[in-house]
Amino acid sequence: LTYASQRSAINSRPSLSVDELKREWPFLFMKKFLMQHFTSLTGIELYERLRECIAGKGRRVLQFFKTQLLRWTKEVKTVLADIERLQGENMDSTIAVILLMMTFFKEKDDAIFLLADRFHPDIKKWMLCVEGKVVIQSVNPQDDFTSALAVFFASFYIFNLEYQAEAASTLEFIQRFLVRINPENTK
């Protein structure tokens, strides 16, 4: 019901900071309502689309890289070896594909991911940071990496943010290949 008012607050000039928006629209900063806002904006059920896409294409992307091993840089080979090693250990294939693509595009993983506690890298909780501030935290232990990726990707569209230059290729890959948003005349 408040979608139109939220859009007009986000698009207002001079623009509000994300912090100010959060004060005005606290519900928009809860995962459920943020994802609903993205669906109203784009017509896409983002979490479902990412899950389907990774289930379908993820294994084929890994195959694409594995079958042409000699072509890749040392860094890509290292990531592929790590993925191979972790394959039996319930590895999240969304993480595998994103890290592999970041390495392939020669982008550093810290252009998207910051480990909050580097001594406990296995903790599965995540937070989303915008303009240097934490704006959403996962509260449900069921929230997987794909839900973090969905919230992260949705925030660019919802808050009119530009992709950061350090991760621009990976983000455009996510947009076109995984989410399948291909604006016309930009082939």
């Binding site: 084929r60 992307v61 195959q63 694409f64 693509m101 392939f104 595009f105 621009a168 290729s169 455009e172 890959f173 076109r176 290949f177 930009t186 082939k187």
Partner: peptide, 19 residues
């Protein structure tokens, strides 16, 4: 469209189609 992304998608699509 970022040319790195475009060439990856093109190559992958060809590979995927052939395999």
């Amino acid at each position: 469209l970022n040319s790195h992304v475009a060439s990856f998608i093109k190559e992958f699509t060809n590979y995927d189609w052939l395999n």
